[in-house]
Amino acid sequence: MALSYTQVDNLDGTGPIVFACEHASQFVPDEYGDLGLSEAEINSHIGWDPGAYDLAFHLAQRFDAPLISSKISRLVLDCNRALDSSTLIPEQGDGSPVPGNKGLSAQEKARRIAQIHQPFHAKLSEVIEAKTSTEMSLPALVSIHSFTPVFNGNIRLTECGFLHGRSDTLARTCAEQGSRDGRYVTHLNQPYSSADGVLYTIDRHGSTNGMPNVMIEVRNDLLTDHDAVVRVSGWLAKIFEQALVIPSYRTESK
């Protein structure tokens, strides 16, 4: 039986959001060895988005929403990249070469796509189709990520970014709400934008289906422990409630 690296939490959730977390784990299966990297490198931000899954899980619980996550390191394959992207199977991460990904055959690339990329997006499509076929209005698609405070030697002052691709309404509304609240330094399309090729999931599943959608980037030093995650999830939940005009589902995340 083929291994599955796609995890679904709260599959039957009835809330008005579908959450995705493409970089939920730093797990590298034994078949890939260490990809030529140290354990510290794999566990760093180049291997996954620290805190992103915990944040997505809290939000999914709060809104009784399904959450689809990729539970394999982005170093093996990045589910938030187009199939023709040069970073689909990255040969370097934040300046660190990834020797195990250099010179891969077309067959090996196709194998990873079939084993990791296709199942993740097939499951996300399935969950969205099931919700849209049974609900009066389209759910929102929210993709949760985190980013490192320092990248390529540059200090990032942004604490939370709301990113958009072809559909910008939800991202702009969330960014406006966040800036008005003032708790965190909030920007639109920071620290990344569509020019960086990082909006594959929300464009493929959200914009294409006419769903409100947004990709959220939270600086990972704000997600270092349970209490920190709860604080950020509570803040984001209020923004979603206002931006999507929906009721408060929970007073606290579970």
Rank of each mutant, 00 (worst) to 15 (best):
Y5R: 06
Y5I: 07
T6A: 02
Q7A: 14
G13R: 02
T14G: 11
I17R: 06
V18T: 12
F19M: 03
E22P: 00
A24E: 07
A24V: 05
A24I: 06
S25W: 07
F27V: 01
F27D: 00
V28N: 02
E31I: 15
L35S: 11
L35N: 05
L35H: 06
G36W: 02
H45W: 04
D49A: 01
A52N: 01
A52I: 00
H58R: 12
R62K: 12
L67G: 05
I68H: 02
S69P: 01
S69G: 10
S70P: 03
S70Y: 04
K71W: 04
R74W: 10
L75Y: 03
V76Y: 08
V76D: 04
D78Y: 13
C79F: 10
N80P: 10
A82H: 14
D84N: 14
L88T: 02
E91P: 01
Q92P: 01
G93I: 10
P97H: 08
V98E: 05
P99Y: 11
G100K: 02
N101Y: 02
K102L: 15
R111T: 10
R112Q: 08
Q115P: 02
P119A: 06
P119E: 07
H121K: 11
H121I: 04
A122D: 15
A122W: 06
K123H: 05
K123C: 11
V127W: 03
V127C: 07
E129D: 15
E129V: 13
E129A: 15
K131E: 14
E135C: 13
E135W: 09
E135K: 13
A140S: 12
I144F: 06
F147I: 02
T148Q: 09
N152A: 15
N154F: 11
I155P: 11
I155V: 12
R156M: 01
E159R: 07
E159Y: 07
L163C: 10
L163M: 07
R166I: 05
L170P: 04
L170D: 00
A171H: 04
E176W: 07
Q177H: 13
S179W: 04
R180G: 05
G182W: 01
T186D: 10
T186A: 08
S193N: 14
A195Q: 11
A195D: 14
G197F: 09
I202Y: 01
D203A: 06
H205R: 10
S207P: 04
T208G: 00
N209Y: 09
M211F: 10
I216F: 03
E217F: 03
R219L: 08
N220W: 00
N220A: 09
D221C: 05
D225Q: 03
A228V: 01
V229I: 12
V230S: 12
A237M: 06
K238N: 13
E241Q: 15
Q242F: 02
I246S: 01
I246R: 03
S248L: 07
S248G: 13
Y249H: 12
T251N: 10
